[in-house]
Design a protein around this nucleic acid. Sequence first.
DNA 1: TACTACATGTAAACGGTTACATGATTGC
DNA 2: GCAATCATGTAACCGTTTACATGTAGTA
Lengths: 185, 185
Amino acid sequence: MSRENKTMYTLLGLLMYAPLTGYEIKKTIESSIKHFWQESYGQIYPTLKKLVELGFADFHIEKVDGKPDRKVYTITGVGKSQFINWLEKPIEKIPIHKNELLLKLFYGQHLDIRHNIAQVIQYKQKMEDILQSLNTTEHFLLTKRKEDPHFDYWMMTLSHGQCIVKATIQWCEESIRKLEEKQKG
Amino acid sequence: MSRENKTMYTLLGLLMYAPLTGYEIKKTIESSIKHFWQESYGQIYPTLKKLVELGFADFHIEKVDGKPDRKVYTITGVGKSQFINWLEKPIEKIPIHKNELLLKLFYGQHLDIRHNIAQVIQYKQKMEDILQSLNTTEHFLLTKRKEDPHFDYWMMTLSHGQCIVKATIQWCEESIRKLEEKQKG
DNA sequence: TACTACATGTAAACGGTTACATGATTGC
DNA sequence: GCAATCATGTAACCGTTTACATGTAGTA
């Protein structure tokens, strides 16, 4: 079974909104799907090249005074239908997420309990930071993008993040409580 | 910054319980940490070799009638202290988890709503399967391993999985409800 | 007869990040 | 003067999966 390259579809999806440069694509990812999807330049630029080779996108060069040339990519008709085709396909596998905290906690018996408590506390703190940033994005969407036709879908992906992170924070609190009890008893 | 090889510590952690063969390590992972950590033979065997080279593990060969030779690996004193050293270190980064459902849902406006509903329903089904398997593992631990000194820690990693999966199922139900409303209105 | 469990291992390919190279402009 | 923003791109490397090679014994 060939491993499918989703980077291609990620970029096509963004080009469905508007023509973009590689640089803008990176920025757009950073401000929209960052909490569940990331792409580095090392992926973006070669994929853009491939998209043109496959006829899924075109580009033209914009010359700007005092700034580097912009290579603006536009999705083609073929690209659009390929994108829709991918969108409709059911997702096959849900890959597991390697979790270093859980790995360490699984082996926690080899350590003093307070070490494990400290690890969970730090993890909880990171989760709270993530929740904060999700809430900021939510506020931005609610005040600035409420009329966008994609609004409801954007909010749904955001609310997924919020749900998971809140559940994780609750698990952290419960685990800290359990560990403190274990320490006493 | 060098990217640390956690596979090494995963194997050392398992060898802390008992001497094991590469094959047994794979089976053990499958029945214990599979829901948050996986390793393939392509990782396990070369890492075992490396562990011996570094002096973190030893091995001896057991000959068994009618079966292939067993290479049984044992953790050394140096391996133990290296493992504990890693355990104590705070975790640095929480990598984001690429989520294909969310990617498709983010672009959902390009599709008929019922397609998106179908995707979320399928995702929910997969989550319910995962929850089922976590509950089975929980039952196994409660009935067979309750006296093990590591029990509490094993249960904690399990409960993490259960919390996250339950929250995800709730998010699915909420999202399906929202999409159905959107379809009507 | 075919599949599963036992058991070891490698090579190729893939997906992804990081570090680097280049260079102008704007703002502190 | 220095950092950040704009902008393109590549090469090296790392981590991981997949497919393959090899072989026995028991079971459905």
